[in-house]
Amino acid sequence: MTVPRQDGRLLLLGAGGHGRAVLELMRHAGLPDPAGVLDDDPASPGLPGVPLLGPLSAAAGLRQQGLLAAHVALGHNARRAELGGWLRRLGFALPVLRHPSAVVAGTARIGDGSVLLPRVVVGAAATVGVSVILNTGCIVEHDATIGDAAHVAPGAVLGGGVRVGARALVGLGASLRPGVCIGADAVVGVGAAVVADVAPQARVGGVPAVPLR
């Protein structure tokens, strides 16, 4: 499908549940609707009111047609990281998407392509990498560091100075003691209370959190 140049509008990748959440965020924030959405599922119905323009691979041609910005609305951390890098190489800008209810300290830094959903709080001097999902109602306290393409799920609370590695997942309602380190690609389970460091690629859960088999 040929798409005319759409300055100020972005291309959305992913028409699933997270894509719907991102679209609602954009509308609540008063942003223009996406110029279109791409999805690899041939049975995908797309997103309401947004043109479905084909599979993810169509992004290259759409960039040549004049689309300037994009956002990867996929929950899978490694895939989101991969696609974000590919889009940057194609020349797309990856803007930060922030819900109006999110509270972000003036000294915090948010990386390109990240999304802050409703009621997110990011504290003083916190650093959030590129393509990060800060999901509904999570709290990232002062001096915390969130690695590229990580996902902090709804209701999770990260104490001051917590470090979360690239592509790690902090599950729904988890609580992380100040200063703990979550390794790259690790998974913290739903409702876990993390009081000690978590190794890369490890899976932990429980209160207090312990390794899961």
Rank of each mutant, 00 (worst) to 15 (best):
L68T: 03
L68M: 10
A69C: 13
A69G: 10
A70F: 05
A70L: 06
H71A: 11
L74A: 00
L74Q: 00
A78D: 05
G84T: 10
G85Y: 02
G85H: 12
R88N: 13
R89C: 07
L90W: 13
L90T: 12
L94S: 13
P95C: 10
V96I: 10
V96W: 06
P100C: 05
S101C: 08
A102N: 08
A102K: 15
V104H: 09
G106Y: 09
G106W: 08
T107R: 01
D112Y: 14
S114Y: 08
V115Y: 01
V115P: 03
L117D: 00
L117M: 05
V120A: 07
V121K: 07
V121Q: 12
G123K: 03
A124P: 09
A125G: 02
A126F: 06
S131K: 11
V132M: 04
L134C: 08
L134N: 03
N135R: 02
N135K: 04
T136K: 03
V140C: 01
V140Q: 02
E141P: 15
E141M: 09
H142Q: 06
D143L: 03
G147S: 06
V152G: 09
A153N: 12
G155N: 08
L158V: 15
G159V: 11
G160H: 04
G165F: 13
A166G: 09
R167K: 13
R167W: 14
A168L: 11
A168Y: 04
V170E: 00
V170N: 01
G173A: 07
L176R: 07
L176K: 06
R177M: 05
R177C: 12
P178F: 01
I182T: 12
G183Q: 07
A184Y: 10
D185I: 15
V188H: 01
V190K: 10
A192H: 01
A193W: 12
A193F: 13
V194C: 00
P200V: 11
R203L: 15
V207D: 09
A209I: 15
V210K: 08
